[in-house]
Amino acid sequence: MSNLVSLGIVLLSAFAYASLQVNLGCFLLLYHSSVGKHIRAKTRTLATSYLAGVSIFIVLCLAAAGFVLLEFFNSALSLWQISALAGGLVAASLLIWLVYYRFGGATELWLPESVKKFLYSRAKSTNNPVESFSLGLVSCFAELPFSIILFCISANSLLSLPSQYQFAGICFFAFISILPLLILRLCLRKGSSIVSIQRWRTKNKLFLRILSGTLFLCLGIFIFVFEVMGKI
């Protein structure tokens, strides 16, 4: 039962991470600027490097969170720390519902202006796989205010699994998290244009916002019920 609950938390966290939009937006930005400048093969290489950057950042962040929990929190968070994280998830869900997207017709997010400018300038000037890889890292970094709670929660759950499953759990989390990027890449490869994808994102902005906020809220409630109330 305990292992199932841990797996459930990891799965829900990964889906919540996958529903965040900065990675997806940066990927589209990179694709947009690269398709205009380079041949298709180079664009594909840049996209692959970007995906590698995002995956490695997620794996490293999760591993780092696990290491911090192991070293400084005796491998498991206390009840009040888990309650605080569950409260943080509920607050994050409210933030996503209310202020994550900018108002208006486009899919702009409430990122700090300097971060936004940096992401745009990096995406435009990316010409080789190393730059693309680092853009993946930077885009994940920009999302940390929301994702850091997910990393802490997932790392806490992964540490309660048997040690042989922990690395597999990290890879599973990373795979689910980059699933939207993989699907997007597949769509672009099959011939969909950025215009149709961006139109779809704009049209379904409300749906994406509600989905993302609901996933955070569900995860918060799930943790509160199974990890806090279950142990009282």
């Binding site: 589209l28 930005l29 947009h32 486009a106 702009e108 997010l109 990122l111 745009y120 215009v195 139109r199």
Partner: peptide, 14 residues
């Protein structure tokens, strides 16, 4: 219309 859309939304993706 597609060209107009992408030309005027290229700075509104993120």
């Amino acid at each position: 219309a597609d060209l107009a859309y992408i030309y005027f939304n290229r700075d509104k993706i993120v």
